[in-house]
Write a protein that binds this DNA or RNA. Structure first.
Length: 220
DNA sequence: CTCCCGATAT
DNA sequence: ATATCAGGAG
């Protein structure tokens, strides 16, 4: 099997998903932060369904602090992990008002101090909203990097991020991040990967190992 | 490492 | 019935 070069990988992704972008609906940095925080272990589609109502009711940090924790929990319950997320949102809003003049900071090191905001979420915020090159590694990016052999199977998300940043030019980090998400979400899916129609099949280590469970084989 | 957790796809 | 979903905190 021939080695999959970074160049071919990036070229293929750009052809498959030229318009890859952030699919979490938002109108400002504050809404983006809430949306990304809510998106942990949940689909973007469900987050958008909930935030459509949520962002009409809550427009400022003060709004989230004006209701009880229980009321906020009910408003985001469909997302899952709602007790932690509701608590994080209110504590995040309190910190924004007390330490950041009510505004979302534009620095990664400040963002990760916010409750419910870890490295991945901070990377999404700085790259998507503030235009700072970053490569957020979520469940999709990690899965793709490992299937295609860009990193070790046992690597942590941080190790995957460092490896990808070395292989991909800085100017392409944010684009590549979104294309990796689309590739993982719509093509190289966790449960039903489209190996049969994959342009990278010939150079995919996972496919060689027998990943191709795209169809049930007939019983002989 | 475990826990958080409802909705959806398979 | 089980796996997975734009993870983070303790």
């Amino acid at each position: 099997m021939k080695k999959l070069t970074t160049k071919r990988f990036l070229q293929t992704l750009s052809e498959m998903f030229p318009d890859a972008h952030c699919e979490l609906n938002h109108r400002n940095a504050f809404e983006l932060t809430i949306a990304v925080l809510l998106s942990a272990q949940c689909t973007d589609k469900k987050v958008n369904q909930v935030t459509e109502r949520l962002f009409e009711k809550y427009k400022t940090p003060e709004d989230y602090l004006a209701v009880s924790l229980e009321e906020l929990q009910e408003d985001i319950k469909q997302i899952g992990l709602y007790k932690n997320k509701a608590k994080h949102i209110q504590e995040l809003c309190r910190m924004l008002l007390e330490q950041y003049n009510g505004e979302i900071p534009d620095k990664h090191e400040e963002l990760v101090k916010l409750p419910g905001v870890g490295r991945k979420t901070a990377n999404v915020i700085v790259s998507t909203w503030f235009g700072v090159p970053a490569l957020a590694v979520d469940t999709h990016v990690e899965r793709i990097a490992k299937r295609l052999g860009f990193c070790e199977e046992t690597d942590t998300p941080l190790q995957v991020e460092k490896t990808l940043m070395k292989k991909i030019p800085k100017a392409e980090w944010t684009n590549s991040h979104h294309r990796l998400i689309f590739f993982g979400r719509y093509h190289c899916k966790a449960q039903n990967p489209q190996c049969a129609v994959c342009p990278l099949q010939d150079a995919c280590p996972a496919f060689q190992r027998g990943l191709k469970k795209t169809k049930k084989t007939a019983i002989n």
